[in-house]
Design a protein around this nucleic acid. Structure first.
Lengths: 135, 135, 135, 135
DNA sequence: GTGGTCTAGACCACG
DNA sequence: GTGGTCTAGACCACA
């Protein structure tokens, strides 16, 4: 496994903990992390990302409260079985939300010169990888 | 005028000033704001976005230092002529940025119960539509 | 107002942040803190309780995520309007839960020599105080 | 034997060892465990509570140092004769403890949507029942 | 060796 | 002056 699934950019104004939180959630959605998988230890991930262990611990704790991860005292931190399906908003609401999220993505991407085509290709590659790992 | 080209989300952990900075740059790149266009006054935008005027002023000042905007005292703040010479980031930087943007999208989508598959299908539909219009 | 509504015991094996979390929730239930009330500043409460400001901040942040408090950037932290009624479990479930909580309370109280009578009198005094403050 | 006089809640932020310590002392004060009674073996209790045997052993050892239990090598662990000379805490200490216990009760109750009023009514009903039985 | 708690103290975002 | 983020480093609970 080529660790370094997660990255963090200290120059990004987004707080480190928020970047890591997003990265872990995204890795789960993308199937790179699956229910039952163990995450790197707090200290190891801190070393890999070159950030403080407390920052990693904070993220793990937050994701546990959110029901995404589960930690076993003295053993480690794991991906929960059910990534909380929850939030079954109406079809219209979900479409509106999806549209809004994608709009933001495309605006930000175009602002740094990334085309729609590139975004789509990248997302398709993630989807393909996920399908393969599900085998 | 339907001002409200810019939005800001106080729940987003990204600092308000960074969200606004990003939004203005994106609007310029997207052509919603063109060289010579006048931006809303600091106070007006602050009211619209329900944030403190100091925060807006800080962003305008930063963008002026960056050569994106120009202020004419007593008249207003305008978009500069340059079509942003920037956006020539390195390949690695662009990949990192793309990854970060997609992470945010997927994390936010999963938080409201939207799957990777749905996101990809939606983006593909947008790409198809755009291709057709180009015919 | 005689501040010092909250107390914390460093000798108690219960973590400080958990003690404070409980204390704040209890103060709200008891009506000592009401929707819209402002809480002490992070730093002030830290000084009063003789604990580190980070510990207080952590509790405020947790209670905000739980929907109990709301913070306004740069202004302060407030009790939310609706202390989340939520959790409308069945009548039988609630009775079972209540019984279990009270059992634990009485066991712990008797272990340190506090009688049922004393517990009841104390709770009644809290209820009376709350009724008065609602005027 | 319906062992299970003791319970432990891994979700409670109070350390497991402190929960068990409290539980054993409470069982003795409440008369569920009397001088000379034998406690479950370390391993058995660990299995019952689904915690590590080291944790149970640590609690037994601590209670032995405190003069609450006595171990007879090769035979088992027993409740000591002394009817706990302790429990003579100062008035201030008892008040502080009572307040802390009630805080926990109210916080937990509100978390599941049980009001202060309901708690008080329930406790009063217990007190009434007990008074009647004493007749 | 794993995660959890706490401290002290620096610096930032916001009003 | 308010809360928020991050660090470095100590010590504890648990397996």
């Amino acid at each position: 496994m080529n660790w370094m699934m997660f990255t963090v950019d200290p120059a990004d104004p987004t707080p480190l903990y928020a970047q890591l939180d997003r990265g872990i959630r995204a890795a789960i959605v993308a199937g790179q992390l699956r229910p039952g998988d163990r995450l790197p230890t707090v200290r190891q991930l801190a070393v890999d990302l070159r950030i403080n262990a407390n920052t990693v611990a904070k993220v793990y704790a937050e994701l546990e409260r959110a029901g995404v991860l589960a930690t076993q005292r003295g053993i480690g931190t794991f991906v929960r079985d059910k990534p909380t399906p929850a939030a079954s908003a109406s079809r219209r609401d979900r479409e509106r939300e999806l549209r809004s999220l994608v709009d933001r993505l495309l605006a930000d991407a175009s602002a740094i010169g990334i085309s729609l085509r590139e975004v789509v290709r990248y997302l398709e590659s993630i989807e393909a990888k996920q399908a393969k790992e599900r085998t």
